[in-house]
Simulated assay, not measured.
Amino acid sequence: MQYDLEGELERRAEYDYLRTIRAVIYGGLVFAPIGNKLYKFMDTIKFPLSWQPKRLYDTMARVSFDQLVWAPVGIPLYYTSITFMEGYGIPEIKAKLREVYLDTLINNWKVWPLFQAFNFWFTPVRYRLLAVNIISIVWNCYLSIKNQLSNAKVEHSED
């Protein structure tokens, strides 16, 4: 029997208020406290050598930390949190991460490094998280869609 992914997506196309609530909970209770501390911490990151121009190397060090340390942790944190709030357990979380992690990380690297370089270079520290939150509106839509698509695949694979 052929799985009808398009039909499944059409069925799920109605506005999902619970999905919005889960996103708000994740953003407000999970990411906000972490992001607040994370961006304060990233401002303290300095390139370990005194090469000039110092500002350029410090910005590169911060972007590197963001993309090579935070992104690989933050992406599974999002999917794990949302999947748990959807009522799924560890097996579904593992299946979802196998399905979406690498693709999401690669797409993250297509979007965030350039923005973060701009953000760390030009944006005052107190506004960096705000700038990230503005770009995150679009990024979180992508994550939500990716999550919903993977739900359909994970649910189908259990049948």
Rank of each mutant, 00 (worst) to 15 (best):
N147R: 04
E99D: 15
D43E: 11
F41V: 13
N108P: 00
A13G: 08
K96R: 12
N133C: 10
L102A: 15
Q116C: 08
S157T: 11
I145R: 05
L68E: 07
L102S: 14
E86F: 05
N108D: 11
F115A: 12
D4G: 05
H156S: 09
W109P: 00
Y17R: 11
I25R: 02
Y15K: 08
T59A: 15
T44P: 00
L130W: 08
R62W: 03
I75K: 03
L114W: 09
D4W: 08
P33V: 09
E99M: 07
L77D: 02
L56G: 00
D16P: 02
A71C: 11
V111W: 11
L102K: 15
Y127Q: 03
L56P: 00
L105F: 14
L130E: 05
E158S: 08
L9G: 06
P124M: 06
N133P: 01
P113F: 07
Y39M: 11
P48W: 05
L149F: 14
A131G: 10
Y88F: 15
T123P: 02
W121T: 12
P53I: 06
F41T: 13
K37F: 07
L18N: 10
L149D: 11
T83M: 08
G27R: 03
G28D: 09
E6H: 11
M85D: 06
T104F: 05
R128T: 00
E14P: 00
G27S: 15
P91M: 12
L129E: 07
S136L: 09
T20E: 05
Q52Y: 04
T59N: 12
N107H: 14
I82M: 14
N36V: 01
N36C: 07
S50E: 15
Q2L: 07
M1I: 11
Y142W: 12
Y101P: 04
L49F: 14
W70M: 03
R62Y: 02
L143S: 02
